[in-house]
Simulated scan of single mutants.
Amino acid sequence: MSEKAELRRRLLATRAGLTPEDVRRAGEALGASAAALPELAGADTVAAYVSVGREPGTRALLDALRERGVRVLLPVLLDDNDLDWGAYEGADSLVRAGRGLLEPGGERLGPDAVCGADAVLLPGLAVDGRGMRLGRGGGSYDRVLQRLERAGAHPALVVLLYDDEVVARVPAEPHDHPVRAVVTPSVTRRFPAASA
């Protein structure tokens, strides 16, 4: 098993032990802290995602951003694992999609819509002191990051995690991109080397 796969396995096992109350409390704390981030507070458009299962909660943050008038884009998983995007119009507009995901039910804006975002909220399992993020391994967000790079777009990259998911080291490959900030229920940390 690769180093990344082993780290993913351990982190997912820890998440599996979280109770619904643990997830709810963490989501509330994350929503408040992330909404106050300058990278999100000053954004006109934020590309985000709807948390599912035991992922660190994004629902409170999505609603807080929308209430402030921020245009929130949510991903739509395509058959080839790439991502299309749609606008978030509130919790009632979400539809259940494949793999248990929740996606926007409205108009599709195309994979390049993410290039207009001021900030991109990336799902993840861990981040290290360099800002290197460990994703789930499906490659969807690697494609997003490559698309941003090709377009010359430099949105703030932010990841929401649980406290114990900020680790000493994430195995990195040449195509991996550092994030600008990580928000956990108890701390926000920025990585200056990742700033555009």
Score class of each variant (00 low, 15 high):
56 P>S: 10
56 P>A: 10
57 G>T: 10
57 G>F: 11
58 T>I: 03
58 T>N: 04
58 T>M: 05
58 T>A: 07
59 R>I: 02
60 A>S: 11
60 A>Y: 04
61 L>P: 10
61 L>I: 09
62 L>R: 11
62 L>I: 08
63 D>M: 01
64 A>E: 13
64 A>C: 03
65 L>A: 03
66 R>W: 15
67 E>N: 03
67 E>K: 12
67 E>M: 04
68 R>A: 13
68 R>V: 03
68 R>C: 04
69 G>A: 11
69 G>C: 05
70 V>K: 13
70 V>Y: 14
70 V>Q: 11
71 R>I: 09
71 R>P: 08
72 V>G: 04
72 V>W: 09
72 V>A: 05
73 L>T: 05
73 L>N: 12
73 L>R: 06
76 V>P: 08
76 V>H: 05
77 L>I: 13
78 L>G: 00
78 L>E: 15
78 L>K: 14
79 D>Q: 14
79 D>A: 15
79 D>K: 14
80 D>I: 03
80 D>M: 05
80 D>P: 06
82 D>C: 11
83 L>I: 09
83 L>T: 06
83 L>D: 10
84 D>C: 09
84 D>K: 03
85 W>Y: 10
86 G>K: 09
86 G>P: 09
87 A>P: 01
87 A>V: 15
87 A>D: 15
87 A>S: 13
88 Y>T: 01
90 G>W: 13
90 G>P: 07
91 A>H: 07
91 A>K: 12
91 A>P: 06
91 A>I: 00
92 D>R: 12
93 S>T: 05
93 S>P: 00
94 L>N: 08
94 L>G: 07
94 L>P: 09
96 R>E: 15
96 R>G: 00
96 R>F: 03
96 R>H: 14
97 A>V: 05
97 A>Q: 11
98 G>K: 15
98 G>S: 15
99 R>D: 09
99 R>Y: 15
99 R>N: 12
100 G>H: 05
100 G>P: 08
100 G>I: 05
100 G>V: 10
101 L>I: 12
101 L>G: 02
102 L>E: 14
102 L>S: 13
103 E>Q: 14
103 E>M: 08
103 E>C: 10
103 E>G: 09
104 P>E: 06
105 G>I: 07
105 G>F: 13
107 E>I: 09
107 E>F: 03
107 E>V: 13
108 R>F: 11
108 R>G: 13
109 L>T: 10
109 L>E: 07
109 L>A: 10
110 G>K: 10
110 G>I: 11
110 G>N: 12
111 P>K: 15
111 P>H: 13
111 P>L: 05
111 P>E: 12
112 D>K: 10
112 D>F: 00
114 V>H: 02
114 V>W: 06
114 V>R: 04
115 C>K: 13
116 G>L: 00
117 A>G: 02
117 A>H: 06
117 A>P: 00
118 D>R: 00
118 D>F: 00
120 V>F: 04
120 V>A: 08
121 L>E: 02
123 P>A: 01
123 P>G: 02
123 P>S: 10
124 G>V: 02
125 L>G: 01
125 L>H: 06
126 A>M: 06
127 V>C: 14
127 V>M: 04
128 D>P: 05
128 D>K: 11
128 D>L: 06
129 G>S: 01
130 R>S: 14
130 R>V: 01
131 G>Q: 06
132 M>A: 06
133 R>N: 04
133 R>Q: 02
